[in-house]
Design a protein around this nucleic acid. Structure first.
Length: 573
RNA sequence: GCGCCCGUAGCUCAAUGGAUAGAGCAACGGCCUUCUAAGCCGUUGGUUGCAGGUUCGAUUCCUGUCGGGCGCGCCA
């Protein structure tokens, strides 16, 4: 609808321009006014152009108004305020959306494919513990964005980058080994910075069942000083030497167990990945060497203090960054450079990374490396999801994977259900710090707005259930006379239905799923008001048919919108 | 200290550079012999942290300042 009005206005302005009666912006800016009396759409062209033309805004607006040709779309156009043009759309034009929705069904709201391939990488949490509620926000946001962009015409692939190569995984292995030794009746000192969660015990038990006592070794690593990190590194090195090839079994057991847990958790949450991309595979394929060679060829690598450095300051970063350590082991950053190069080589039109806000300082170096390798950094979009600050019993709750003191995503899902959790997460825009009240989120109360939207859907289904119970029937939707829909609530609903496609498009382009969540709440609100104000089944026949047809369209849009957010549309509550 | 994000009603949050800044929850008053009351209708609630600037017009853009979060590893 907006597009139709905009083109009508644009044609008018073009006409005036050729007659020399208008000079101004060629792009037509059309907005939806907040206030009822200001029409359905408003344009500020007269305000914007008046100064340059040296005329009064209202007078110019009046001239434009007079030049707008009559159209069945428009009931009237008013000049208001300082010089706004307010368009009032005719009821008939609004009603056209109903057959369109019913004709397209589940695919209503899908924009034509735009041929663009997008890679969306999100969550990518280290597999050294279960996902917690902080990861849940990234998961809900990323998956909703993927669905949203799919609906907006993109071809989207979801990817999870598995950090299976680093020191953190060695620390998990060491932690599992310590618990394993305990389980074998040979307790050893638990690493000071090890992972203390219960899941480590579980993995250790499974390891004992599978490997018996074959991994028992004396805990006699030479330990000196009081540097916790150094002690841990020494123990890891010692354990690797003591276990030999069996270290791979230990490491692999921890990794596999955590990955399986994360994968199952996400799938139950409605998030399915197209690819789980292993960091280790980059080491093994030589991709890291290749990426570093590219940087070197570009003159952006140098040696200092026995390490290899990327000249990140050349690309706007605060300092240069190490890519190969003194001990010849590449850093995580080196893997990431190779990973991004590989993403570019796969030929996507656009790359999106969703990161936790704590990684924002990492952006300049990654973009810098990409630029240095001759790739266009503009094609890499990094979206940050702010932390959720957790409150439990009115107190801030600490979240630490190390200590094992955290609320898992699985626990939250079990308490509130997937629907409530997903909706709750995407109701806040991602860059907003979010206060997550666990007691509120876990209480299955009507304070959770997802029920409000789902109830609207269930209510409509229920009307049709009642209809059948009363022995009434509904004719083909196309046969009803929608012209009978003249009540205020009906026009409000029709207007809202006309907005849906626009909401999808804007939410996708701005990467803001919360826009859709708010829209659905608004649509649900209009439905509830309609429900309370008008009778459907007891209305006279032609009117009843028209109203039921409208309800079908509303139900369809609610269902489609909820689907994009990964939330179910229940038939009954 | 430097950098990034945020600051809007009692609480949690919206608001595409536009007109009188909106919802939900909380509080208060109404609405179930008729399609689900997880609902509806109404009332109360604001110096958009503060001070400047740009603009016909600023919650939105710019500068400064205060407050909160995060980052500034040869961790990932």
């Amino acid at each position: 609808m907006k597009r139709k009005i905009a083109s009508l206005l644009k044609d008018t302005l073009d006409g005036l321009s050729t007659k020399g009666e208008f000079r101004g912006p060629t792009e037509v800016d059309l907005t939806r006014p907040r206030q009822d009396g200001h029409g359905d759409f408003a344009s500020n062209v007269a305000l914007a152009a008046a100064k340059a033309m040296g005329v009064a805004p209202r007078a110019l607006a009046e001239r434009i108004r007079a030049a707008i040709p009559p159209s069945r779309l428009i009931e009237r156009v008013e000049v208001a305020g300082p010089g706004f043009l307010n368009f009032f759309v005719s009821a008939g034009a609004w009603r056209d959306i109903v057959p369109e929705i019913l004709g397209q069904g589940d695919t209503f709201g899908y924009l034509p494919a735009n041929g663009k391939r997008v890679l969306l990488e999100f969550v990518s949490a280290n597999p050294n513990g279960p996902l917690h509620v902080g990861h849940g926000r990234g998961a809900a946001y990323g998956d909703s964005l993927a669905r949203l962009m799919t609906s907006a015409g993109y071809t989207v692939e979801r990817e999870y980058y598995v950090n299976d190569a680093g020191r953190q995984m060695d620390i998990l292995a060491l932690s599992v080994w310590a618990r394993y030794m305990e389980a074998c009746g040979q307790p050893v000192a638990f690493p000071a910075n090890g992972y203390r969660g219960d899941y480590v015990h579980d993995i250790a038990r499974h390891l004992k069942e599978a490997a018996g006592d074959s991994l028992i070794r004396p805990d006699d690593a030479p330990v000196t000083g009081d540097d916790i990190e150094a002690i841990t590194d020494a123990r890891i090195a010692h354990l690797k030497a003591a276990l030999g090839p069996l270290y791979g079994t230990l490491h692999g057991t921890g990794l596999k167990a955590m990955l399986a847990d994360i994968r199952e958790d996400l799938e139950e949450f409605g998030v399915r990945y197209d690819r789980w991309y292993s960091e280790r595979s980059l080491v093994e394929s030589g991709a890291i060497k290749r990426a570093l060679a590219l940087l070197a060829a570009h003159g952006d690598l140098y040696e200092k203090d026995g390490a290899h450095w990327f000249r990140a300051t050349r690309y706007g970063d605060e300092k240069d960054r190490v890519v190969v350590r003194e001990n010849a082991v590449p850093t995580y950053f080196a893997s990431d450079i190779a990973y991004h190069l590989e993403k570019y080589e796969r030929g996507y039109d656009h790359l999106i990374n969703i990161w936790g806000a704590d990684h924002h300082g990492y952006i300049p170096r990654v973009k810098g490396a990409v630029t240095a390798m001759g790739r266009d950094p503009a094609r890499l979009e990094i979206l940050l999801v702010q932390f959720a600050i957790l409150y439990r019993g009115g107190q801030r709750a600490q979240m630490s994977t190390r200590s094992g003191d955290f609320v898992t995503l699985r626990e939250l899902r079990k308490e509130v259900g997937n629907d409530a959790a997903r909706f709750f997460y995407v109701l806040r825009k991602s860059e907003q710090h979010m206060d997550f009240d666990l007691d509120l989120a876990k209480s299955r109360s009507n304070e959770n707005p997802v029920f409000y939207v789902q109830y609207a859907h269930a209510r409509i289904v229920s009307v049709f259930r009642q209809m059948r119970e009363r022995g009434q029937t509904m004719a083909e939707p196309g046969a009803s006379d929608l012209g009978l829909l003249t009540a205020g609530e009906e026009l409000a609903l029709l207007r809202a239905l006309n907005q849906y496609t626009q909401v999808i498009e804007e939410a996708a382009e701005t990467r803001e799923p919360h826009q859709l969540a708010y829209y659905l709440r608004e649509l649900a609100s209009l439905l509830h008001a309609y429900y309370n104000a008008q009778a459907f089944l007891s209305a006279e026949d032609p009117l009843r048919q028209a109203r039921l047809t409208l309800l079908l369209a509303v139900r369809q849009v609610l269902a489609n919108g909820l689907m994009v957010l990964g939330v179910s549309a229940p038939e009954a509550m």
